[in-house]
């Protein structure tokens, strides 16, 4: 198959997979925490938090990317701080692509997990409390395992969104082959040059194959998990 794709195209495929899985894994703990806060918390500003989480879903991706560039760019307040204190640079790096796609996938991740936390029977949590489990322990051994199907669904959605993310990524980290050129950016580049149709088609087929595989894998996993959770 490596003969079928050019080395540059392979790099784009591998980079996309790397960016999407890193984005999914890094945002998972935050996603669970925010989902729990939104599902169970009662605090001032909850609807503000809800709106902020959903913002990337409704803003044009280019706007999100531009805001990221303003704040996380080397001259932006957060970007400058990160570079001064940790030597971390996000703009025009693959890690920046991770940040952009993680932020774009975050609302989908939180939404799926939040729904499944809301569906967990509070009575089971009360019962665990009477058996000596503290609130965090209840969360770990009762709530979390019971919403595992929702967490998996959220992870897959987040992964798929990150694989397909284009606007915010290209605005924030540009389209540098081998560093920030993910599948969508590579396809876009092909469509911009004469004679690029074949390359665009190859990458498009790969995109479709990856997405469909992710979808089937998640379905199978979710079925297994929910069978286990339902007993």
């Amino acid at each position: 198959m490596s003969g079928w794709l050019s080395p540059d195209e392979w790099v784009a495929v591998r980079l996309s997979l790397l960016v999407a899985s890193t984005a999914m894994l890094v945002s998972l703990p935050f996603g669970i925490a925010i989902a729990w806060l939104l599902a169970r918390g009662r605090f001032w500003g909850k609807s503000l938090l809800d709106a902020a989480v959903h913002l990337p879903l409704i803003l044009p991706p280019v706007v999100t990317g531009y805001l990221l560039l303003l704040s996380f760019g080397r001259k932006g307040p957060i970007g400058a701080w990160l570079e001064a204190w940790f030597g971390v640079v996000l703009s025009f790096r693959w890690t920046g692509a991770v940040l952009a796609s993680a932020i774009m996938g975050f609302p989908l991740l939180v939404r799926a997990i939040r729904l499944s936390i809301e569906a967990v029977d509070r009575k089971l949590e009360d019962a665990a409390g009477t058996l000596g489990a503290g609130p965090f322990q209840v969360f770990l051994v009762v709530t979390l395992p019971l919403c595992l199907p929702g967490i998996l669904a959220g992870m897959i959605l987040c992964f798929a969104k990150a694989m397909g993310e284009f606007g915010a990524t290209i605005t924030f980290v540009s389209n540098i082959p081998g560093e920030t050129q993910t599948l969508p950016s590579a396809i876009y580049t092909f469509t911009q040059v004469p004679g690029g149709e074949a390359g665009a088609m190859r990458l498009t087929l790969i995109s479709i194959a990856l997405s469909v595989t992710a979808l089937f894998a998640s379905e199978a996993l979710a079925r297994r998990v929910s069978r286990r959770v339902a007993g």
Binding site: D121, K123, L124, D126, A127, A128, V142, P145, L146, R228, V229, A230, G231
Partner: peptide
Amino acid sequence: FQEARLFPH
């Protein structure tokens, strides 16, 4: 409890 509330998982 009235309903057993066993942990299904």
